[in-house]
């Protein structure tokens, strides 16, 4: 399994040089293996979300680099970085972050539309059916339950066929039964589509499913457990 995502001395400090300075992530070097399910765990404030955001190019590091494939992600200009986000990375937020004025279908297709692409019909159907939200496609987010919204968010992340799928506590706002369901869906769809899955969580159920476990504490990586080995 090759490394799809490599960090080199990646670090993030908030409010540098002020009394409120926080070293959310200390210089970290690690590699994410392609096709595997990697879970990032740690207590709250350990820096796991920060790491995830950086990996997803949603944030900029204070130091260090990320190589995606063979590209130094943060050396890209704004436009190319955006393209990376559109095409290579899919992100699922804990709070779903759907746009309220669009139906489920429209929310799902948004990233494709923004990229100027059409959704290949079979792919769309595949994802929809996988996530079981076909009959909810024309509803607005405020007409959907939490689980349905999360599934729509996942569909949105999947529809662009990204290489890497990142999820930040995707089941955090769901009940345990639904959470399990969603988690399985994520894992299965990632496997089916040969995507690399990186999830931040402190749900032991999810942790149990992961291939690689990265543990963070106070901004430091304290352990990396590879279960495939």
């Amino acid at each position: 399994m090759s490394i799809i995502l490599q960090t080199n001395n990646l670090a993030k400090t908030y409010n540098p040089g002020t009394p409120a300075q926080v070293e959310a992530l200390k210089p970290t070097t690690l590699g994410i293996r392609q096709g595997l399910f990697t879970a990032i765990i740690g207590r709250s404030g350990s820096g796991k979300s920060t790491l995830l955001h950086l990996l997803g190019a949603l944030d900029r590091p204070s130091a260090g680099t990320i190589i995606l494939g063979s590209q130094d992600v943060f050396s890209l200009n704004d436009r190319d970085l955006a393209i990376v986000r559109r095409q290579k990375v899919g992100f699922v937020f804990q709070a779903y972050n759907l746009l309220l004025e669009y139906t489920a279908r429209e929310n799902i297709l948004l990233p494709l539309n923004l990229d100027g692409r059409d959704a290949p019909k079979d792919r769309f159907d595949q994802i929809i059916d996988l996530l079981g939200i076909r009959d909810r496609l024309d509803h607005y987010p405020n007409q959907l339950s939490g689980g349905e919204q999360q599934r729509v968010a996942i569909a949105r992340a999947l529809v662009t066929a990204p290489d890497i799928l990142l999820a930040d506590e995707p089941t955090g706002n769901l009940d345990s039964k639904t959470g399990d369901q969603v988690m399985r869906l994520l894992r299965d769809s990632a496997k089916a589509l040969n995507q690399t899955l990186i999830i931040v969580t402190h749900d032991p159920g999810i942790t149990a499913m992961a291939d690689v476990l990265i543990t963070l504490d106070s901004g430091n990586v304290v352990s990396i457990k590879d279960r495939t080995a």
């Binding site: 704004d78 992100f91 990233p111």
Partner: peptide, 10 residues
């Protein structure tokens, strides 16, 4: 959110 979906600054 839009930025996360790849909308550029321009």
């Amino acid at each position: 959110i839009l930025q996360s979906m790849g909308v550029t600054r321009d």
